[in-house]
């Protein structure tokens, strides 16, 4: 029995293992597992373009978030201003290296890798050619997705903001707003992310590449 015996129209539910025949989904339709109600796949209009656009926009915002002060603190005439990278550096130099690494990885490195991976895969899909390593790239992107914690960090900032307000004057810097936009972009990307659709498009890109070479 080969792959072709169950062609692309079938899908095995990730959560209850039911084998389901998928109809062609119209734009905006979502396919749920009839047994356990798991979202199998969805046809989200223009999801590929959205992923591409939001990923690039978020990466630009993340780069901007590193350029300006993140938070400025003013207490009894002492002013202290930290940048995003600077705050991680403070944690690292004061011998809290593991904490610094965990925080930095989950709020910046992993989301950035995720977005870069999606940009690369999107480029492969858009130019209709299989770029080297695009498949490995998408596989890693899917594996990294649960470890992205950008939006949680944003809530963390707001909570600490409220905690500090009683002690000192706090001012959110330009970088904070850039980071907030970055987070917003990451959420929009994850809302349009469908692994089945991305693999289908990558397969189509490979097929297009083969036919143009032949």
């Amino acid at each position: 029995m080969g792959v072709t015996d169950f062609p692309a129209v079938h899908i095995a539910c990730h959560e209850c293992d039911l084998l389901v025949a998928l109809p062609v989904l119209r734009p905006g339709q979502h396919a749920y597992c009839p047994r356990c109600n798991f979202l199998l796949t969805a046809n989200r209009p223009d999801s590929q373009s959205k992923i591409f656009a939001y990923s690039i926009a978020s990466l630009i915002c993340l780069a901007l978030a590193n350029l300006f002060p993140f938070i400025t603190l003013n207490a009894r005439g002492m002013e202290q201003s930290v940048t995003l990278l600077g705050s991680v550096a403070i944690l690292a130099t004061e011998d809290h290296r593991l904490l610094a690494a965990v925080v930095f990885a989950s709020i910046a490195v992993i989301p950035a890798l995720l977005l870069c991976g999606l940009v690369y895969v999107s480029v492969a899909i858009r130019i209709g050619r299989e770029l080297p390593g695009a498949r490995t790239c998408l596989r890693w992107t899917i594996a990294l997705a649960p470890w992205n914690m950008a939006e949680i960090f944003l809530i963390g900032i707001l909570v600490s903001f409220i905690k500090i307000v009683s002690l000192a004057d706090v001012e959110l810097g330009l970088s904070f707003w850039a980071y907030a936009l970055f987070t917003f972009g990451v959420v929009l990307v994850s809302l349009n992310f469908d692994r089945r659709e991305l693999w289908d498009l990558l397969d189509a890109a490979r097929a297009a590449g083969h036919s143009s070479h032949a």
């Binding site: 202290q80 930290v82 403070i90 965990v102 914690m149 909570v159 905690k163």
Partner: peptide, 13 residues
């Protein structure tokens, strides 16, 4: 993870 981030931010700030 919110709480860990709050500690990280407070320590850095």
């Amino acid at each position: 993870m919110v709480d860990v981030f709050v500690v990280g931010i407070l320590v850095a700030l």
